[in-house]
Protein backbone atom coordinates (compact mmCIF):
# COMPACT_ATOMS: atom_id res chain seq x y z
CA UNK A 1 0.00 0.00 0.00
CA UNK A 2 2.81 2.37 0.97
CA UNK A 3 6.36 1.71 0.02
CA UNK A 4 9.57 3.66 0.51
CA UNK A 5 12.63 2.54 -1.39
CA UNK A 6 15.93 4.12 -0.35
CA UNK A 7 14.17 7.40 0.27
CA UNK A 8 16.68 10.19 0.80
CA UNK A 9 16.25 13.90 1.24
CA UNK A 10 19.21 16.13 1.84
CA UNK A 11 18.87 19.77 2.85
CA UNK A 12 22.19 20.62 4.34
CA UNK A 13 25.09 18.46 5.40
CA UNK A 14 23.35 16.96 8.45
CA UNK A 15 19.67 17.40 7.96
CA UNK A 16 16.99 15.44 6.14
CA UNK A 17 16.60 11.68 5.91
CA UNK A 18 18.91 9.02 4.60
CA UNK A 19 18.15 5.85 2.71
CA UNK A 20 14.84 4.91 4.29
CA UNK A 21 13.22 1.69 3.09
CA UNK A 22 10.02 0.11 4.36
CA UNK A 23 6.74 -1.38 3.21
CA UNK A 24 3.31 -1.03 4.71
CA UNK A 25 0.67 -3.56 3.72
CA UNK A 26 -3.00 -2.86 3.28
CA UNK A 27 -4.81 -2.61 6.63
CA UNK A 28 -1.69 -2.03 8.73
CA UNK A 29 -1.52 0.68 11.35
CA UNK A 30 2.08 1.79 11.54
CA UNK A 31 3.68 4.45 13.67
CA UNK A 32 6.75 6.47 12.76
CA UNK A 33 8.40 7.25 16.06
CA UNK A 34 11.26 9.62 16.62
CA UNK A 35 12.38 12.69 18.53
CA UNK A 36 11.72 16.14 17.15
CA UNK A 37 13.94 16.87 14.20
CA UNK A 38 14.59 13.21 13.42
CA UNK A 39 13.07 13.46 9.94
CA UNK A 40 9.51 12.30 10.58
CA UNK A 41 7.81 15.18 8.79
CA UNK A 42 10.27 15.04 5.92
CA UNK A 43 9.55 11.33 5.44
CA UNK A 44 5.81 11.95 5.54
CA UNK A 45 6.03 14.85 3.13
CA UNK A 46 7.84 12.66 0.65
CA UNK A 47 5.21 9.93 0.98
CA UNK A 48 2.42 12.41 0.33
CA UNK A 49 4.21 13.86 -2.69
CA UNK A 50 4.60 17.29 -1.12
CA UNK A 51 8.40 17.08 -1.15
CA UNK A 52 10.28 15.35 -3.94
CA UNK A 53 12.97 13.00 -2.64
CA UNK A 54 16.59 13.76 -3.50
CA UNK A 55 16.88 10.10 -4.41
CA UNK A 56 14.84 6.98 -3.93
CA UNK A 57 11.19 6.31 -4.63
CA UNK A 58 7.97 6.60 -2.65
CA UNK A 59 5.01 4.55 -3.85
CA UNK A 60 1.44 4.90 -2.67
CA UNK A 61 -1.07 2.33 -3.88
CA UNK A 62 1.56 1.35 -6.45
CA UNK A 63 1.91 4.89 -7.84
CA UNK A 64 5.13 6.85 -7.69
CA UNK A 65 4.38 10.01 -5.72
CA UNK A 66 6.56 12.01 -8.08
CA UNK A 67 5.71 10.77 -11.56
CA UNK A 68 2.12 9.61 -10.91
CA UNK A 69 1.50 12.19 -8.25
CA UNK A 70 -2.20 12.82 -8.90
CA UNK A 71 -3.03 9.10 -8.91
CA UNK A 72 -1.13 8.64 -5.66
CA UNK A 73 -2.79 11.65 -4.04
CA UNK A 74 -6.28 10.33 -4.89
CA UNK A 75 -5.62 7.44 -2.51
CA UNK A 76 -4.34 9.47 0.42
CA UNK A 77 -6.03 11.38 3.18
CA UNK A 78 -3.28 13.51 4.71
CA UNK A 79 -3.38 15.44 7.95
CA UNK A 80 -0.36 17.76 8.14
CA UNK A 81 1.13 18.73 11.48
CA UNK A 82 -0.52 22.16 11.45
CA UNK A 83 -4.20 21.79 10.67
CA UNK A 84 -4.62 23.34 7.21
CA UNK A 85 -7.85 25.28 7.48
CA UNK A 86 -9.13 28.52 6.02
CA UNK A 87 -10.04 30.65 9.03
CA UNK A 88 -12.76 32.53 7.17
CA UNK A 89 -14.68 29.46 5.98
CA UNK A 90 -17.41 27.72 7.93
CA UNK A 91 -16.94 24.07 8.85
CA UNK A 92 -19.38 22.86 6.20
CA UNK A 93 -17.96 25.17 3.54
CA UNK A 94 -14.47 23.89 4.21
CA UNK A 95 -15.58 20.28 3.89
CA UNK A 96 -17.51 21.04 0.71
CA UNK A 97 -14.34 22.59 -0.73
CA UNK A 98 -12.17 19.63 0.25
CA UNK A 99 -14.75 17.18 -1.13
CA UNK A 100 -14.78 19.01 -4.46
CA UNK A 101 -10.97 19.11 -4.62
CA UNK A 102 -10.89 15.41 -3.84
CA UNK A 103 -13.29 14.65 -6.68
CA UNK A 104 -16.18 13.40 -4.61
CA UNK A 105 -19.07 13.32 -7.13
CA UNK A 106 -21.56 16.08 -6.35
CA UNK A 107 -24.39 13.59 -5.84
CA UNK A 108 -22.45 11.87 -3.04
CA UNK A 109 -20.95 15.03 -1.56
CA UNK A 110 -23.64 15.73 0.98
CA UNK A 111 -23.68 12.25 2.45
CA UNK A 112 -19.87 12.01 2.52
CA UNK A 113 -19.62 15.35 4.30
CA UNK A 114 -22.23 14.27 6.83
CA UNK A 115 -20.35 11.05 7.40
CA UNK A 116 -17.06 12.90 7.96
CA UNK A 117 -18.78 15.32 10.34
CA UNK A 118 -20.28 12.43 12.31
CA UNK A 119 -17.00 10.50 12.42
CA UNK A 120 -14.98 13.44 13.64
CA UNK A 121 -17.79 14.56 15.99
CA UNK A 122 -18.08 17.98 14.44
CA UNK A 123 -21.87 18.11 14.65
CA UNK A 124 -21.96 20.84 17.34
CA UNK A 125 -19.80 23.20 15.26
CA UNK A 126 -20.88 22.46 11.69
CA UNK A 127 -22.16 26.01 11.13
CA UNK A 128 -19.30 27.73 12.94
CA UNK A 129 -16.47 29.71 11.35
CA UNK A 130 -13.39 27.52 11.46
CA UNK A 131 -11.05 30.29 12.56
CA UNK A 132 -13.03 30.55 15.80
CA UNK A 133 -12.78 26.86 16.72
CA UNK A 134 -10.65 25.43 19.51
CA UNK A 135 -7.41 23.71 18.63
CA UNK A 136 -8.99 20.28 19.11
CA UNK A 137 -11.88 21.07 16.79
CA UNK A 138 -9.54 22.57 14.19
CA UNK A 139 -7.52 19.37 14.23
CA UNK A 140 -10.66 17.27 13.87
CA UNK A 141 -11.91 19.51 11.07
CA UNK A 142 -8.66 19.02 9.17
CA UNK A 143 -8.94 15.28 9.76
CA UNK A 144 -12.53 15.34 8.49
CA UNK A 145 -11.21 17.12 5.40
CA UNK A 146 -8.61 14.42 4.88
CA UNK A 147 -11.28 11.74 5.33
CA UNK A 148 -14.07 13.22 3.30
CA UNK A 149 -13.35 11.24 0.13
CA UNK A 150 -13.02 8.04 2.16
CA UNK A 151 -9.42 7.31 1.11
CA UNK A 152 -7.96 3.85 1.67
CA UNK A 153 -4.80 5.36 3.16
CA UNK A 154 -4.53 7.87 5.97
CA UNK A 155 -1.27 9.66 6.71
CA UNK A 156 -1.21 11.66 9.92
CA UNK A 157 1.67 13.88 10.98
CA UNK A 158 1.73 14.27 14.78
CA UNK A 159 -2.07 14.05 15.05
CA UNK A 160 -2.26 14.80 18.78
CA UNK A 161 0.34 17.50 19.15
CA UNK A 162 -0.97 20.55 21.00
CA UNK A 163 -4.19 18.87 22.15
CA UNK A 164 -5.29 18.68 25.77
CA UNK A 165 -5.51 15.25 27.45
CA UNK A 166 -9.21 14.78 26.70
CA UNK A 167 -8.73 15.73 23.08
CA UNK A 168 -5.73 13.39 22.83
CA UNK A 169 -7.86 10.56 24.18
CA UNK A 170 -10.64 11.28 21.68
CA UNK A 171 -8.24 11.61 18.78
CA UNK A 172 -6.66 8.24 19.57
CA UNK A 173 -10.08 6.62 19.87
CA UNK A 174 -10.98 8.08 16.49
CA UNK A 175 -7.78 6.80 14.89
CA UNK A 176 -8.46 3.32 16.26
CA UNK A 177 -11.98 3.45 14.90
CA UNK A 178 -10.74 4.57 11.48
CA UNK A 179 -8.08 1.88 11.40
CA UNK A 180 -10.68 -0.85 11.11
CA UNK A 181 -10.81 -0.66 7.34
CA UNK A 182 -7.87 1.54 6.42
CA UNK A 183 -4.13 1.65 6.18
CA UNK A 184 -2.84 4.24 8.61
CA UNK A 185 0.62 5.71 8.87
CA UNK A 186 1.18 8.23 11.63
CA UNK A 187 4.16 9.99 13.10
CA UNK A 188 4.65 10.88 16.72
CA UNK A 189 7.32 11.55 19.29
CA UNK A 190 5.26 9.97 22.07
CA UNK A 191 5.80 6.28 22.74
CA UNK A 192 2.44 5.64 24.48
CA UNK A 193 0.73 6.99 21.37
CA UNK A 194 2.24 4.27 19.23
CA UNK A 195 1.34 1.73 21.88
CA UNK A 196 -2.23 3.00 21.96
CA UNK A 197 -2.98 2.77 18.26
CA UNK A 198 -0.28 1.03 16.24
CA UNK A 199 0.57 -2.58 15.60
CA UNK A 200 3.96 -1.87 14.16
CA UNK A 201 6.52 0.83 14.66
CA UNK A 202 9.30 2.37 12.63
CA UNK A 203 11.84 4.24 14.71
CA UNK A 204 13.72 7.08 13.08
CA UNK A 205 16.67 8.91 14.55
CA UNK A 206 18.82 11.57 12.96
CA UNK A 207 17.37 10.83 9.56
CA UNK A 208 17.91 7.06 9.56
CA UNK A 209 15.55 4.21 10.26
CA UNK A 210 16.86 2.41 13.34
CA UNK A 211 14.07 -0.10 13.95
CA UNK A 212 11.11 -1.62 12.16
CA UNK A 213 9.22 -4.13 14.27
CA UNK A 214 5.99 -5.00 16.04
CA UNK A 215 5.39 -2.70 18.97
CA UNK A 216 5.61 -5.43 21.65
CA UNK A 217 8.99 -6.56 20.44
CA UNK A 218 10.33 -3.03 20.42
CA UNK A 219 9.44 -2.53 24.06
CA UNK A 220 10.80 -5.92 25.08
CA UNK A 221 14.03 -5.36 23.23
CA UNK A 222 14.44 -1.97 24.76
CA UNK A 223 14.30 -3.20 28.30
CA UNK A 224 15.74 -6.57 27.42
CA UNK A 225 14.06 -9.44 29.25
CA UNK A 226 14.77 -7.76 32.56
CA UNK A 227 12.19 -7.15 35.21
CA UNK A 228 12.12 -3.73 36.75
CA UNK A 229 10.16 -2.74 39.79
CA UNK A 230 9.56 0.35 41.79
CA UNK A 231 8.50 0.10 45.43
CA UNK A 232 7.36 2.65 47.97
CA UNK A 233 8.30 1.76 51.55
CA UNK A 234 7.53 3.41 54.85
CA UNK A 235 10.04 2.91 57.64
CA UNK A 236 12.88 1.63 55.50
CA UNK A 237 16.50 2.30 56.28
CA UNK A 238 20.08 1.23 55.63
CA UNK A 239 19.45 -2.25 57.04
CA UNK A 240 16.61 -2.90 54.61
CA UNK A 241 18.57 -1.46 51.71
CA UNK A 242 21.46 -3.74 52.44
CA UNK A 243 19.21 -6.78 52.69
CA UNK A 244 17.43 -6.04 49.40
CA UNK A 245 20.60 -5.22 47.50
CA UNK A 246 22.04 -8.51 48.66
CA UNK A 247 19.16 -10.54 47.19
CA UNK A 248 20.06 -12.88 44.38
CA UNK A 249 19.36 -11.42 40.95
CA UNK A 250 19.19 -7.75 41.87
CA UNK A 251 21.53 -5.87 39.58
CA UNK A 252 20.69 -2.23 40.02
CA UNK A 253 19.33 -0.64 43.11
CA UNK A 254 18.64 3.04 43.72
CA UNK A 255 16.85 4.92 46.45
CA UNK A 256 15.18 8.27 46.11
CA UNK A 257 13.26 10.57 48.42
CA UNK A 258 9.49 10.41 48.28
CA UNK A 259 7.16 13.36 48.83
CA UNK A 260 5.28 11.38 51.48
CA UNK A 261 6.80 11.84 54.95
CA UNK A 262 8.83 8.91 56.23
CA UNK A 263 8.74 7.09 52.91
CA UNK A 264 11.44 6.08 50.47
CA UNK A 265 11.10 4.96 46.86
CA UNK A 266 13.41 2.22 45.63
CA UNK A 267 14.04 1.27 42.02
CA UNK A 268 15.41 -2.17 41.23
CA UNK A 269 16.42 -3.94 38.10
CA UNK A 270 16.81 -7.70 38.01
CA UNK A 271 19.21 -9.85 36.09
CA UNK A 272 17.85 -11.22 32.84
CA UNK A 273 15.53 -14.17 33.38
CA UNK A 274 15.20 -13.59 37.12
CA UNK A 275 11.96 -12.66 38.83
CA UNK A 276 12.80 -11.58 42.36
CA UNK A 277 9.59 -9.74 43.11
CA UNK A 278 8.45 -12.32 45.65
CA UNK A 279 11.79 -12.19 47.50
CA UNK A 280 11.76 -8.41 47.51
CA UNK A 281 8.31 -8.26 49.10
CA UNK A 282 9.26 -10.80 51.79
CA UNK A 283 12.49 -9.00 52.60
CA UNK A 284 10.72 -5.69 53.06
CA UNK A 285 7.98 -7.12 55.24
CA UNK A 286 10.38 -9.19 57.35
CA UNK A 287 12.44 -6.07 58.03
CA UNK A 288 9.39 -4.56 59.73
CA UNK A 289 8.91 -1.80 57.13
CA UNK A 290 5.57 -1.20 55.45
CA UNK A 291 5.26 -1.91 51.73
CA UNK A 292 2.89 0.69 50.29
CA UNK A 293 3.30 0.22 46.53
CA UNK A 294 4.96 -2.11 44.08
CA UNK A 295 4.85 -1.61 40.33
CA UNK A 296 6.58 -3.05 37.33
CA UNK A 297 8.01 -0.35 35.13
CA UNK A 298 8.61 -0.40 31.44
CA UNK A 299 11.02 1.17 29.05
CA UNK A 300 10.43 4.82 28.27
CA UNK A 301 10.90 6.38 24.90
CA UNK A 302 14.22 7.80 26.05
CA UNK A 303 15.44 4.33 26.85
CA UNK A 304 14.14 2.91 23.59
CA UNK A 305 16.09 5.54 21.72
CA UNK A 306 19.07 5.17 23.97
CA UNK A 307 19.23 1.45 23.28
CA UNK A 308 18.58 1.73 19.57
CA UNK A 309 21.10 4.45 18.97
CA UNK A 310 23.83 3.06 21.18
CA UNK A 311 23.83 -0.22 19.34
CA UNK A 312 26.17 -0.42 16.42
CA UNK A 313 24.54 -1.14 13.04
CA UNK A 314 25.64 -4.80 12.87
CA UNK A 315 24.11 -5.83 16.17
CA UNK A 316 21.05 -3.75 15.42
CA UNK A 317 20.51 -5.70 12.23
CA UNK A 318 20.98 -8.92 14.16
CA UNK A 319 18.48 -7.79 16.76
CA UNK A 320 15.87 -6.94 14.15
CA UNK A 321 16.27 -10.24 12.34
Amino acid sequence: MIEARNLTKTYGPNRGVRDITFRIESGDVVGLLGPNGAGKSTTIKMLTGYLPPTSGVALVGGFDTLTRSIDARRRIGYLPENAPIYPELRVEEYLRYRAALKEVPSSARKSKINLAIARCRLEPVRKRISGHLSKGYKQRLALAGALVADPPILILDEPTVGLDPNQVFEMRALIRELSENRTIFLSTHILPEVEAVCSRVLVINEGSLVADEPIGRLLRNASGERQRVRVLVRGGGPALEKAVAALDGIEAFTAEASPEPGCIRYKMEMREGVDARDAIVRTIINSGAALLELESTRASLEEVFGNLTRLDPASRAAGAA
Binding site: Y50, P84, L101, G145
Partner: peptide, 14 residues
Protein backbone atom coordinates in the same frame (compact mmCIF):
# COMPACT_ATOMS: atom_id res chain seq x y z
CA UNK B 1 1.03 31.11 6.07
CA UNK B 2 -2.09 29.06 6.84
CA UNK B 3 -0.31 25.84 5.93
CA UNK B 4 -3.10 25.16 3.46
CA UNK B 5 -0.58 24.91 0.65
CA UNK B 6 0.35 21.51 2.05
CA UNK B 7 -3.28 20.50 1.74
CA UNK B 8 -3.69 21.85 -1.80
CA UNK B 9 -0.46 20.28 -2.93
CA UNK B 10 -1.40 16.86 -1.58
CA UNK B 11 -5.01 16.85 -2.70
CA UNK B 12 -5.34 15.79 -6.33
CA UNK B 13 -4.84 19.31 -7.70
CA UNK B 14 -2.15 20.51 -10.09
Amino acid sequence: RNGTIEMLATDPVR
